[in-house]
Design a protein around this nucleic acid. Structure first.
Lengths: 108, 108
DNA sequence: TATATCGTTCGCAAAATTACGAACAATATT
DNA sequence: AATATTGTTCGTAATTTTGCGAACGATATA
């Protein structure tokens, strides 16, 4: 009688992974992690895509909870959502920390 | 004169993240990481999707380099690609290890 | 030679992703 | 009131993803 659904942890991990599954979004996170200030224009400047597309990628990262934005007229300031970033960090760390089977009857 | 391309690291990180961006594929990795043996049928059994779809997800993980499969007639054995798994682990670890700005003029 | 098992591939459909230019809203400046 | 700046949203198009059943190939068994 096993449960064939995915666990909440698996869903959350996948959600974060999916949000990070595009080089533009990795580049955005890299940028936000090292900049003091993080205006839309600054991010847009370093990416090889149009501002419409940058805006879209930012929206996805925001919806995944990894970043947050606030209006600071006439600009928009973006930054990492620390709480969720730490949750993601923990989830990935535990995920990769799982022991890989190394018994003799393992395929490797 | 800045380079607006993505770095190889960003591309690779995104490729791994994308491969992990679905709960079924997280579940598959969870399973492979804890099982001694890893036949297709075993994986298929614990997932709430058809075998055709499982096969597809396995293919994506394989193409991303995270797993490998070998025929062991009449079954197919899957396992983690240790080398690439460790590369992914390192990339994510460094990615999440980046210091988040906490200066006073940061947005948080 | 028929039949069963195991898993992939094919063909299809629906939905999501990626990307862009143009239009837009909101606020400042002239 | 016109104009400029900043970034979002709209509309559109091309591509990719996700999912399934059916068909298939390969090997073993009756």
């Amino acid at each position: 009688m096993e449960n064939k659904e995915y666990t909440a942890r698996q869903e959350q991990l996948a959600r974060f992974a999916k949000a990070l599954g595009h080089p533009a979004r990795i580049a955005i996170m890299d940028f936000l992690l090292k900049q003091k200030c993080c205006f839309f224009g600054d991010i847009n400047e370093v990416l090889p895509i149009s501002k419409a597309t940058v805006s879209q990628h930012l929206k996805e990262l925001k919806e995944a909870g990894l970043i947050q934005g606030e209006i600071e007229t006439p600009k928009v300031k973006y930054c990492v959502n620390i709480e969720n970033w730490e949750m993601a960090s923990k989830l990935f760390s535990e995920f990769f920390g799982q022991n890989i089977c190394k018994q003799e009857n393992c395929c490797q």
